[in-house]
Amino acid sequence: MTTQTATDDAPLLVAEGLGKNYGARIGCRDVSLEVFPGEVLAVVGESGSGKSTLLGLLSTELAAGAGRVSYRMRDGELRDLAGLGPAERRLLMRTDWGFVRQNPADGLRMAVSAGGNVGERLMAVGWRHYGNIREEATDWLGRVEIAADRIDDDPRAFSGGMRQRLQIARNLVTKPRLVFMDEPTGGLDVSVQARLLDLIRSLVAEMGLAVIIVTHDLAVARLLSHRMVVMRHGRVIETGLTDQVLDDPREPYTQLLVSSVLAA
């Protein structure tokens, strides 16, 4: 067995017994999961089922009440994220990770040009050559199908779909290994959604990204994900390969979820 297969077999992110309460209410409870390099994991469930809380815990944006999250660093070592210092954690978040938010205004700097938005991460990791930053930004705008002559426009002049694509470019420019996505197609009309999903799917395959995507839309999960996790009342009630879960749901709740969607 070569070293390459050894790393591919090892999980990138491991969550064990994760839990969080909001006062007396349960945000999520006893969630354990693993994400492997290059794998797309969908977290599905209805509103209020704890999906976004789980995403917050996995990305360390929320402090866990119980359990822990470990991440395999680029040196191959699996480390407990709670044990990282703030400097290390922030470096991880702006280099090795990406976070695509439902509302692009939360993930973009709306008063900064598209080029500046894409270039910010590069400058944060020490790029100091304007020409190179611009070239890289132009290249990435092309990859997310934004015309090069829009590079100096700010995102306020962009449509919803363009903003979302810009947000993706901004996150992928440092070639992360893991991207968190919170309802990335929410609020977009159906044709724009389809194009965006296509784009995400090709980028994920091309870059070998691992993705944890939260969605209530089973069609999105079907199109993008390899495996899925079904949540209800803050717990994981079913996991499995996406096709398997959607075509042959075991839990009554999952059956209800699947049957309530038209042609998922």
């Binding site: 922030r90 700097r109 040009s113 080029g115 910010e120 991460r121 400058m123 944060a124 304007y130």
Partner: peptide, 22 residues
């Protein structure tokens, strides 16, 4: 304050980038 503490000054260059772009 956090940015100063962690010496994260990429943002300052975003401003200079915007200057040159505009």
């Amino acid at each position: 304050r956090q940015l100063h503490a962690l010496e994260e000054y990429g943002l300052m260059h975003v401003k200079l980038y915007e200057d040159i772009a505009r």
